[in-house]
Design a protein around this nucleic acid. Structure first.
Length: 572
RNA sequence: UGGGGGAUAGUUUAGUUGGUAGAACAGCGGAUUCUGGUUCCGCCAGCCCAGGUUCGAAUCCUGGUCCCCCAGCCA
């Protein structure tokens, strides 16, 4: 059957958000225009959950030839820092998206927002309240009881304007006054019970410095920022569903055209947490080395770990967009990372836990060079030459003196193939006289098997990776496992979160032996160490004097599965 | 218990005038393989519940159940 053009047409990405946007385009709402935005608060690093939102917002815009801007919602000077805006811009670019000239900051709108507030005061839709924070809470009521009006609710316009200007002028201490919207203290939606619009904060803002001492709350800044920018579709997460009526109220009272807000469910990933607060606590508590610790689900951590932007984008596409709360299995992310890496990662050989092997019948001084394929999935990546000699390193796990059933690697008297080289046979095992540990293997090789095939057609059951000892380069390798041993750590409170960390999430291996082509590794590619997994140079701690590799993800390991099943059976 | 949302295999999803519930991941089994990788094939497994309308319901109607969000001068 031949494939015709029509069969190749990609199914257009579709989800309920995109459907809604497309409908608006078709009905010519917003003049057929599409403009979105990604609005992070610069108070932490971006994580894979943000990637979902980034892919959605930038994706929708580009599918409609529209604009997607990057806007920092920086309305709270006490949390926000330039370090975070730098990292956020870097991460969004790395993920593969470009906001072009559309870089925005809510703090750029402080003056406009202030004027909006004045406008609401003049139309008697906002007032300065002088209740304490505790009293405001008490007056607000509860989920089941209505609230009651503040005694300051009926201040005159003149009085309100004077007080609000005084707030701006720095005449009052923090907490003495706030500006509130005058809506409905009996509303079933608690967000509508005269929400606070402005608070006094005598703190330096990382962008506006000391220019302001009153700052709008997110609720009063977000919708207007969208409106000021001409955003048509304001895509956000589910928890803002309750706030939508409030945003609409502000915009309607201000007579400003407003975007359509569409809420989707945020991402949850098994075995990790995706909450900036909790991630920040892991950093602050020293449980990880930083926001970019390769175990972190942050974009900077995943970059350092060797995950590709392509695989993260593919992941976001695969998980879809919907409204129900879900937890995606980490195994899916790992599968997608492997799939991308399998197609593009150069293959090399590296021995993680070296076992010295001497080929008794191989000449002392002889060195041969065998040709190895760089990527069997992509012949255009070519081949390389790897040195072979009398003394080699093999993987400790590839030898077993007393091999269990189904173990078909090296064992006493057994023959295996060394990848791209010769068949070798284990003749003798040298033990450490004190510990009894296997210290070295004496093997013989069959010169007629160069290239990996025997002229007599005999087969071996295993092909092992190896490194020539004299030519090897030393490296430190860091193996990573899931950050948490429990499946849903997000359900845990901050207090017990750290105690649920997986103690084996980081394992450091020293004295690993790599093939010589890795002496000068590429800093931006992730390699496949054959039969082991994918590894990349650690961007922070690796140097010319000390090579450090991070394991991105292990290869699927059927043998390990057989073994763990065996152990499970034994323990039952 | 006020208001706002949501329920399709173990997990994440598709299902557009009502017409045999489709996929991916995970799990299990097999074939191929100079990576116990990749690839390929097969198996397992699902419409929250109860009624109703209909020749026919995941889809429409009624009534339940369960889960999530909101009581920051956080976002």
């Amino acid at each position: 059957m031949s494939r015709r053009g029509g069969d190749e047409i990609h199914k257009l990405k579709s989800d309920f958000v995109r459907d809604a946007v497309s409908q608006d385009v078709r009905s010519n709402k917003f003049g057929g225009r599409v403009q979105t935005r990604f609005p992070p608060e610069p108070n932490g690093y971006l994580h894979i959950g943000h990637a979902k939102s980034i892919c959605l917002n930038f994706g929708i815009a580009s599918e409609h030839n529209g604009v997607c801007s990057l806007r920092f919602d920086d309305t709270n000077p006490s949390n926000e820092e330039s370090e975070f805006v730098e990292s956020i811009m870097k991460d969004v670019r790395w993920l593969g998206f470009d906001w072009g000239p559309h870089l925005r900051y809510a703090s750029d709108y402080f003056e406009e927002l202030y004027q909006f507030a004045l406008q609401l005061i003049r139309s008697e839709k906002a007032y300065v309240d002088s209740l304490s924070a505790d009293d405001i809470r008490a007056y607000r009521g509860t989920l089941t009881e209505t609230g009651k009006n503040s005694p300051y609710r009926d201040r005159t316009v003149v009085e309100n304007i004077e007080l609000f200007k005084g707030m701006r002028a720095g005449e009052f201490p923090e907490g003495s006054h706030v500006l509130r919207a005058k809506i409905d203290m009996c509303s079933g939606n608690i967000n509508m019970r005269d929400p606070v619009m402005y608070r006094i904060v005598h703190a330096r803002h990382y962008r506006t410095g000391d220019k302001w001492c009153i700052y709008p709350l997110y609720d009063f800044a977000h919708g207007q920022s969208d409106a000021l920018e001409g955003v048509t579709h304001s895509v956000c997460t589910l928890e803002f569903e309750n706030n939508r009526p409030l945003y609409d109220w502000f915009l309607d009272e201000l007579s400003v055209a407003h975007p359509r807000q569409i809420e989707f469910a945020r991402l949850n990933l098994s075995h990790t947490v995706l909450s900036k607060r909790k991630l920040g606590e892991l950093v602050a508590g020293g449980h990880v080395s930083g926001w970019d610790d390769p175990r972190m689900p942050t974009l900077s951590g995943m970059r350092r770990r060797g995950y590709t932007p392509t695989s993260l984008r593919n992941f976001c596409e695969t998980i879809g967009v919907a409204k129900r709360n879900t937890t995606v299995d980490m195994a899916l992310l790992e599968h997608i990372v492997r799939k991308d890496l399998n197609s593009c990662a150069p293959r090399v050989m590296g021995v993680l836990r070296p076992l010295r092997v001497v080929l008794l019948n191989y000449p002392e001084e002889k060195v041969e060079h065998v040709e190895a394929i760089n990527n069997p999935e992509d012949s255009s990546m070519g081949t390389r030459s790897v040195p072979f000699s009398r003394v080699l390193y093999l993987e400790k796990d590839d030898f077993n003196e007393d091999p269990p059933k189904k173990f078909y690697r090296l064992a006493p008297g057994r023959e295996v193939r060394l990848r791209y080289a010769y068949f070798i046979r284990c003749e003798n095992v040298v033990h450490n006289p004190e510990t009894g540990e296997v210290e070295e293997l004496h093997c013989t090789y069959d010169p007629s098997t160069l290239g990996g095939m025997a002229p007599d057609g005999r087969k071996v059951k295993a092909t092992l990776h190896w490194v020539s000892a004299a030519h090897s380069v030393d490296a430190e390798i860091r193996l990573y496992e899931r950050l948490f041993s429990v499946e849903e750590p997000s359900a845990l409170t901050s207090e017990i979160l750290a105690s649920s960390l997986n103690p084996e999430s980081l394992q450091v291996l020293r004295g690993c032996k790599l093939e010589p082509s890795l002496a000068q590794p590429s800093s931006d590619s992730t390699y496949q160490f054959e039969r082991q997994g994918y590894f990349c140079v650690d961007s922070i701690e690796s140097s010319e004097n000390k090579l450090v590799f991070n394991r991105t993800v292990a290869l699927r390991d059927t043998w390990a599965r057989i073994e763990s099943k065996r152990h499970a059976k034994r323990n039952n």
